[in-house]
């Protein structure tokens, strides 16, 4: 565990907490893409199957359980509890266009052709693009609430910090995982446009509004 990995995990944790609190406090999931949240639930489910096969550390186990639990809780809040506030007219990204390529790529490019390994690889590929329905929704409505922007910034920072962690680990431990690294870079690049808007607008107290 190094400082980049730890802050990355904390940014990820923060993002999830911000999102859950926003929905819970406002009793509304307006502006949140339920489809992105479904994709994240699929990502954690397929990645953390090793919870029952491999023990790494108490930290690792607790975080995995939290990510799994919170992702299902978020999906429940959006599609069941606060269904009436869900903005489905603007959440029109076709997730099969992300899931199918991730499945095919996981079958073609993986570390080992075993069920657990392929599911892990699939989760890595899917995570890298899972935010697209949310970004699509923001671009479609042309704006995002500040709290949604904070959520996106924390979530984008997480994989960015993981890249620093991978550089550090490669230098210090000669440890690297090409699949995670390439997918992590793709994932971070997808946020670049948003990062720019966040820094130039949201941090200056303005609402995140896209030019018409």
């Amino acid at each position: 565990m190094n400082i980049f990995r730890l802050t990355g995990d904390l940014a990820h944790l923060l993002a999830i907490i911000i999102l859950l609190l926003k929905i819970w406090k406002t009793r509304s999931c307006a502006g949140i893409s339920g489809k992105s949240q479904i994709l994240f639930a699929i990502v954690y489910t397929t990645r953390y199957l090793d919870l029952v096969t491999t023990y790494v550390s108490a930290y690792n186990t607790l975080m995995k359980i939290f990510f799994l639990g919170s992702s299902f809780a978020t999906v429940y809040l959006i599609y069941v509890k606060f269904k009436a506030t869900y903005d489905h007219n603007h959440d029109t990204f076709r997730i099969e266009f992300l899931i199918l390529p991730a499945v095919i790529l996981a079958l073609l490019i993986n570390h080992a052709f075993t069920p657990l390994e392929i599911l892990w690889t699939f989760s890595i590929y899917l995570e890298s693009v899972a935010i697209l329905p949310q970004l699509f929704m923001v671009s479609k409505t042309g704006e995002a609430e500040s709290i949604t922007s904070h959520y996106l910034f924390a979530l984008g920072s997480y994989r960015g910090l993981y890249i620093l962690n991978w550089i550090y680990r490669y230098a210090m431990e000669s440890h690297y995982d090409l699949i995670a690294i390439v997918a992590g870079i793709v994932q971070t690049v997808l946020y670049c446009d948003f990062f720019y808007l966040y820094i130039t607008k949201v941090l200056k107290g303005k609402k995140l509004q896209l030019p018409a």
Binding site: D9, H12, T54, V56, N110, A112, F113, W120, N165, Y176
Partner: peptide, 10 residues
Amino acid sequence: NTKTVVKDEL
């Protein structure tokens, strides 16, 4: 196939 690595990250 690239080498299998320990999955100690989240």
